[in-house]
Design a protein around this nucleic acid. Structure first.
Length: 571
RNA sequence: CGGGAUAUAGCGCAGCCUGGUAGCGCAUCUGGUUUGGGACCAGAGGGUCCGGUGUUCGAAUCACCGUAUCCCGACCA
């Protein structure tokens, strides 16, 4: 490609609505342009990157024997009614009607369509396992699209769906996809981690997310220092380091705490250790409970994990915090003075709370706290559960090492779906007894457009993007200095350009009539990983200059060696 | 959907408080001088000032009503 023929829409300044670095750089490098909130046009340069990611994903999936299909983005409501999701799915599902008034949606995911296809096409267990995938545009009407293509409404996704006669077969394919995902992200060159994840509303047994580590990520990931354990913080089991409750040393006493509404105020005003305080949160109880509200107790320095909490049988799902009025009515005191002693509603305590002694908590009387409280002696120990977020330094749940927490961008997610959709849509095959059997399913997603953004989050400097070789829009750029003035330089540049192209190298020739500074700055901004500069001075000595995008200095290379030099670099 | 903010040339912004018919930098076009790190000089083009209504002799500017976008939160296969 010649730069003079390429839409190089670079900007010196980034548009004011861009927040994260990848969004800014994609706009500045002329890779994308916004059409409306959460909707982006991929310009030629950006599309080249997107296609490269897509091809890596395709190649690796094809290796596993998965078969590519392409399903419509527009889906009839009937299928969604059959699975029950027409009602379940909220406003994130974009619904529309055709000219006959028939209802459709723009697919946020394709379980229904693929299950429909498979129930029509597959008849026998002998055709299983089968794995179908597509790379296709999804639409999710996000409440708040943000960060450019990182969380857009329309985005490119690879979604795969596997079908099995039993759980064992599903497990096998699931493991294979896990390995394949690792290969894909390795090939792209991302720093990522597979982590255990919540199965969420999709349901099913096992689930892993693949997270690219970056500060701009929207998820917290907990890792073990000494093992492979990694989990989304939503799921990571909180283990307390303290095994047994220390013996009581203090007497329980009622203290006036009129100006201490929050844990921090309490700790500050009474010189308490925050690890000896208890936070009492009141939420709605589940419908089968006798009372309307239930109290959840975590240590003062801990945070409630809402996903864990709403899975408890006594707690309403989705989690709903009680209002101040509801609390006052049920307990007689307002938030800020609540605790387990003389509490009129049921109560669940976190594991770490259960091993506390001589602790401080609200007295369920406005502006009063009890200090020196001890379980059993002062108040019966209630139900114990894991209801908090893990924190830095917690023991790893697998018993090896301690946890640290980093931010991650979710670029892939694999699920063991089970029979959720095959059951609803009655997708059966005949088993070896000739009996109709509901198939077991897995599903596997990669956010292709999100991968592009996350690669930038991990690979950039103050000059711009630094693409990994595998997904760079061009692998090499040739910058001839003053090509339009020099008689000797132009044929050399053209020949090198042709030679590299004939080797199958993706090369950009910057043949624009621009000054050196502009060419350098543009090529660095758009992140071409390898640069060759041709100048009259060097050519007189038969030398050209090479510079990797991360290098600080040029390397002089003899002109006759440069193709081999590059071939070695591009292995 | 709750809270906060913004909307003026392709991009970044000023002007608004104190009403008088729109400006700066970058980008674009022309000519010239330059040419190894986002050049300089001279000239040119480009605006429903988000939309509507109102106040006024007169509205980018004041008032009201919309719309869009961004940030924080809740939400998120």
């Amino acid at each position: 490609m010649r730069a003079s023929k390429l839409l190089l829409a670079t900007l010196k300044e980034s548009p004011s609505d861009a927040e994260v670095i990848s969004h800014k750089l994609m706009l500045r490098a002329g890779m994308i342009r916004k059409l409306a909130s959460g909707l982006y046009t991929w310009l030629p340069l950006g599309l080249r990157v997107l296609r490269k990611v897509e091809n890596i994903v395709r190649e690796e999936l094809n290796k596993t024997g998965a078969q590519e299909v392409l399903m419509p983005a527009t889906q009839p409501s009937e299928l969604w009614k059959e699975s029950g999701r027409w009602e379940q799915y909220g406003p994130e599902l974009l619904r529309l009607q055709d000219r006959h008034g028939r209802e459709f949606c723009i697919g946020p995911t394709h379980e229904e369509v693929i299950t429909d296809m498979v129930r029509n096409e597959l008849r026998s267990y002998k055709q299983l396992p089968a794995n179908f995938y597509q790379i296709q545009t999804k639409f999710r009407d996000e409440i708040r699209p943000r960060f450019g293509v990182m969380r857009s409404r329309e985005f490119l996704m690879k979604d795969a769906y596997s079908f099995h006669i039993d759980e064992a077969s599903l497990n096998e394919t699931y493991q294979e996809m896990h390995t394949t995902y690792c290969q894909i992200f390795n090939r792209i060159g991302l720093d990522y981690r597979p982590v255990q994840a919540d199965t969420g509303s999709i349901g099913g047994n096992a689930s892993h997310e693949f997270h690219v580590l970056a500060d701009s990520g929207e998820d917290d990931i907990a890792f073990s220092s000494d093992s492979d354990y990694a989990a989304n913080i939503e799921l990571a089991e909180a283990v307390t380091a303290v095994k047994a409750r220390p013996a009581a040393k203090q007497d329980m006493k009622l203290v006036d705490t009129p100006h201490a509404k929050t844990i921090n105020e309490l700790v500050e005003q009474f010189s308490l250790n925050i690890e000896n305080t208890i936070k009492t949160l009141i939420v709605h109880a589940s419908e089968e409970s006798e009372q309307d509200l239930i109290a959840l107790l975590v240590r003062g320095d801990h945070e409630l994990n809402e996903i864990k909490a709403e899975k408890l049988p006594g707690v309403a799902s989705p989690l709903c915090f009680a209002t101040d009025e509801e609390i006052k009515k049920a307990i007689g005191a307002g938030p800020g003075s609540l605790g387990p002693v003389n509490l009129s509603i049921p109560c669940i305590v976190d594991r770490s709370v259960a091993v506390m002694s001589d602790f401080s908590a609200g007295a369920n009387i406005d502006d009063k706290h009890y200090f020196g409280v001890n379980w059993e002696r002062d108040v019966a120990i209630p139900d114990i559960a894991d209801i908090r977020n893990v924190i830095e330094g917690d023991p790893s749940p697998d018993g090896k090492g301690t946890l640290s927490i980093k931010r991650g961008i979710e670029v892939g997610h694999i699920f063991q779906l089970g029979k959720k959709y095959s059951q609803a849509l009655n997708a059966t095959v005949l088993d070896d007894q000739g009996k109709a059997t509901i198939m077991t399913m897995g599903c596997y997603g990669i956010g292709v457009s999100r991968v592009v953004a996350s690669a930038i989050e991990q690979n950039h400097d103050d000059k711009g993007i630094i693409w990994p070789d595998s997904i760079a829009p061009f692998q090499v750029v040739i910058i001839p200095m003053n090509m339009h003035k020099s008689e000797t330089l132009k044929p050399v540049a053209e020949k090198l350009y042709d030679d590299l192209r004939s080797l199958g190298i993706d090369v950009l020739l910057d043949d624009r009539k621009e000054r050196a500074g502009i060419m350098f700055a543009d090529m660095e901004l758009i992140g071409i990983p390898h640069r060759i500069v041709l100048g009259d001075r060097g050519l007189e000595k038969g030398m050209v200059e090479y510079k990797g995008r991360r290098d600080t200095d040029n390397t002089d290379v003899a002109l006759e060696d440069i193709t081999q030099f590059l071939k070695d670099k591009l292995v």
